[in-house]
């Protein structure tokens, strides 16, 4: 299992490295349209072929991976932190805080987010650059995606609050801040990591769906989510395996991260 973890970590690092040096790896600008060479098969010039507008698929894949790998973990980190602050901390502090937090989380989870997102789109100016648009999208996901992890963390924190070692610590006069720092955080860390890793692919896919509301990654900037949109109809099933490259990268990233996470939880 240790070997598998090493392989997964190596693969994840390689993918992250691969996306970080996207500019060096790709020979073409990701937005350059070669209109005489649309939907081309892989060739020495275009390693993964070209898309429907004649853009180099490899270049778009590396840049798209970079956009998604930079922003999805940041958004997942933000939502996990919020989940800790609004779920775990009140759950650990006592029944009163827990009840207020639970009510608030239920309220947040029951809100019609679609309409809220539509409202956000209305408030945003139309003329924002693709980079600003993608940053706003992931910020929104981070700010709104903490409800479910908060509930899970709250339940775990409550169990910790009632555990004997915490009771003992409190009896010996350990302060609340110290309890949070020394007892709660280390015990919640595996759950938080798992929630973080679950959120990364969820946010990548959510970003693709948000483009329906005009909030996703705007053209011509690629992201894994926008590349995955190519696969949404039956038209993608045409034996052109290169159109599945974004899916393959996503699967590799998610599975490597999951293996790393599950191993670290065991240890």
């Amino acid at each position: 299992m240790k070997g598998m973890r090493r392989v997964a970590m190596g693969l994840a690092s390689l993918l992250i490295l691969f996306s970080m040096v996207a500019g060096l790896l790709s020979r073409f600008d990701y937005m350059r349209q070669d209109r005489m060479c649309i939907d081309a098969r892989p060739s020495p010039e275009h390693w993964l072929g070209t898309d429907a507008l004649g853009r180099d698929r490899f270049s778009r894949l590396v840049h798209g991976t970079r956009v998604s790998l930079m922003l999805a973990p940041a958004a997942a980190g933000l939502s996990t932190l919020l989940a800790f602050a609004l779920g775990a901390a009140p759950g650990f502090l006592g029944k009163f805080h827990e009840r207020i937090a639970r009510t608030f989380i239920d309220l947040v989870l029951s809100m019609p987010w679609l309409f809220l997102l539509l409202m956000v789109r209305t408030l945003l100016p139309l003329n924002i650059s693709p980079k600003a648009s993608v940053a706003v999208t992931f910020l929104m996901l981070g700010l709104l995606g903490w409800g479910v992890p908060a509930r899970i963390l709250l339940a775990r924190a409550r169990r910790l609050r009632q555990s004997e070692f915490v009771l003992f610590a409190r009896c010996t006069g350990v302060s609340r801040c110290r309890l949070l720092g020394i007892h709660l955080m280390p015990n919640l860390w595996p759950v938080m990591l798992a929630q973080f890793l679950i959120a990364v692919p969820v946010f990548i896919l959510a970003e693709a769906n948000l483009s329906l509301l005009g909030l996703g990654v705007a053209e011509p900037l690629p992201s894994l989510g926008s590349l995955l949109r190519e696969l949404e109809t039956i038209l993608s099933v045409r034996g052109d395996l290169c159109s599945f490259s974004a899916l393959a990268v996503l699967v590799l990233i998610v599975s490597s991260l999951q293996i790393v996470a599950s191993q670290s939880e065991v240890h």
Binding site: R35, L53, R121, N127, I128, P130, L212, G214, E219
Partner: peptide
């Protein structure tokens, strides 16, 4: 996206925004 690319050659920045039909 193609119009955006054509206009870029003239130094014009066109931002493509897709919206749901009702909006």
């Amino acid at each position: 996206t193609m119009i955006q690319s054509d206009l870029r050659s003239l130094g014009i920045t066109a931002n493509v925004v897709t919206l749901d039909f009702a909006s």
